[in-house]
Amino acid sequence: MPQTYSIGEMGRLTDTKIETIRYYERAGLLPSPPRSAGNYRVYTQEHLGRLGFIRRARELGFPLNQVRMLLNLAAQTDRSCEDVDILVREHILEIDRKIRDLHSLRQELNHLLKQCQHGEIGECRIIDALGR
């Protein structure tokens, strides 16, 4: 008899909250499992592997639409991995953009901090710059 898991076990094994597992089911990323006689979800090893894949992709910052694409591509084992490479390159470009944005934000905040005169809030240049 194949190994089965409750939703709680799935959550513990993959460090995923139960509500997140249900969300992935509603979003169509994780197939809905069959139900037991007591109407409990009964997950299989396939569910566990797929949830692990989703979690790892999310840890790497892939948005859900790209996770969906990666899952679809992963199911096509005889296909070239060129489309996977394209998705990863696009994701790296987005990460690079975010890093540039964060660097710019950091510079702006450092500039504001250097203008601080350590006076009273009523004369605070940082608060003024934020549009008091």
Rank of each mutant, 00 (worst) to 15 (best):
P2G: 03
I7H: 05
E9L: 04
E9K: 12
T14N: 02
D15C: 11
D15V: 13
E19L: 09
T20K: 06
T20Q: 03
Y23A: 00
Y23L: 11
E25N: 03
A27C: 06
L29A: 00
L30M: 08
L30Y: 01
S32N: 08
P34M: 14
P34C: 07
P34N: 12
S36I: 09
A37W: 11
Y40H: 11
R41P: 00
R41H: 01
V42A: 12
Y43M: 01
T44Y: 03
Q45V: 07
E46L: 10
L48Q: 03
G49L: 15
G49R: 14
G52R: 13
F53Q: 08
R56G: 05
L64P: 00
Q66S: 01
M69T: 13
L70M: 02
L70D: 02
L71D: 00
N72C: 07
L73D: 05
A74F: 13
A75L: 00
A75M: 08
Q76D: 05
D78W: 11
S80L: 11
E82M: 14
E82V: 10
V84K: 11
D85A: 10
I86H: 10
V88C: 00
V88K: 01
R89T: 06
R89F: 05
L93M: 07
E94F: 11
E94T: 12
D96C: 03
R97C: 07
R97E: 06
K98E: 11
R100A: 15
L105Y: 01
Q107D: 10
Q117A: 01
Q117T: 10
E120A: 11
I121N: 15
G122R: 09
G122W: 05
C124T: 00
R125L: 13
I126L: 09
I127T: 07
I127Q: 05
